[in-house]
């Protein structure tokens, strides 16, 4: 019980940190982008503009979200470990597991707020340009958010095992590779000599962002069945938990020199 309270305390403080450190400034850019595209498209009044706004909005949400997830996942956690700010806190009854889980929860909440505000911005743009509010978009937003949680967990893992510079490089590489994991899977057909079990293993190891991506389906009105959403939720939850567990193991063994 006390443990949960401490996790919440850390999470709340982490969220406060992201606010104070002005992490959410990206929202301003998003707002500007949405407003501009809304105005522009209104002028042009193309038939397809609704799809364009949705497409652009969701893509921007994905990109901004990912950048922020890497930024806070590596930046804030490495900073915490490399500077000595944890020294006083780890002598308190706060367990290392509780600390890391609290951090993860606080950052995940930051990402949620981020995505929520961006969604609101997208809907506002649609509203102001006189479109119908398509609640189906939320499925895509949800997929984006799951992806961000995966990115965050990877960033946390890398931050606990290496320096911030290496952690950023690793996180970015894995995220990019995860986005193009199909390429890796088909690598054995392109380059001879790479044994297919290796590429297959890599494919399964990397986070599969494609499965979480409902953007096109939603924009073009294709069905996204509920059981698919449930399945990718389970996938993301399991993946993030395993990665976080590895981070916990690494963090526990750490010497704070």
């Amino acid at each position: 019980m006390g443990g949960l309270k401490r996790v919440l305390a850390v999470a709340a403080n982490t969220f406060r940190e992201t606010i104070r450190e002005r992490v959410l400034y990206n929202l301003v850019f998003f707002a500007v982008l949405m407003t501009l595209s809304g105005l522009l498209l209104n002028r042009l009044s193309i038939r397809q503009d609704e799809k364009i706004i949705k497409d652009l909005g969701l893509a921007a949400m994905d990109v901004f979200g990912t950048v922020i997830a890497i930024f806070i996942g590596v930046g804030l956690v490495s900073k915490e470990i490399e500077r000595r700010s944890l020294f006083p806190l780890l002598a308190k009854p706060l367990g290392r597991d509780e600390l890391l889980v609290g951090k993860a929860a606080g950052l995940a909440f930051t990402l949620l707020v981020n995505v929520a505000v961006m969604s609101a911005g997208l809907y506002l743009t649609l509203l102001l340009t006189g479109r119908v509010l398509d609640l189906g978009l939320l499925k895509a937003v949800y997929g984006i958010y799951l992806g961000l949680v995966l990115v965050l967990s990877l960033a946390l893992l890398f931050s606990t095992v290496t320096s911030s510079a290496v952690a950023s490089v690793c996180t970015v590489s894995v995220v990019v590779a995860g986005r193009y994991s199909d390429v890796i899977r088909n690598m054995d057909q392109v380059t001879k000599g790479v044994p297919s079990p290796v590429t297959e293993f890599l494919y399964w190891l990397l986070p599969n962002f494609r499965n979480l991506d409902f953007k096109n389906a939603v924009v073009y009105g294709l069905p996204v069945p509920f059981d698919v959403v449930a399945l990718v939720t389970v996938y993301a939850a399991v993946y993030a938990s395993v990665v976080l567990l590895l981070a916990l193991v690494a963090f526990r063994r750490k010497d704070f020199q």
Binding site: N13, R16, E17, R20, E21, R83, R84, S85, F87, P88, A91, K92, P93
Partner: peptide
């Protein structure tokens, strides 16, 4: 840990 207090050398506290 409930009964101990610790001040690190050159403490670095959350500056935000």
């Amino acid at each position: 840990r409930y009964r101990v207090g610790y001040l690190p050398e050159n403490p670095y506290l959350y500056d935000y």
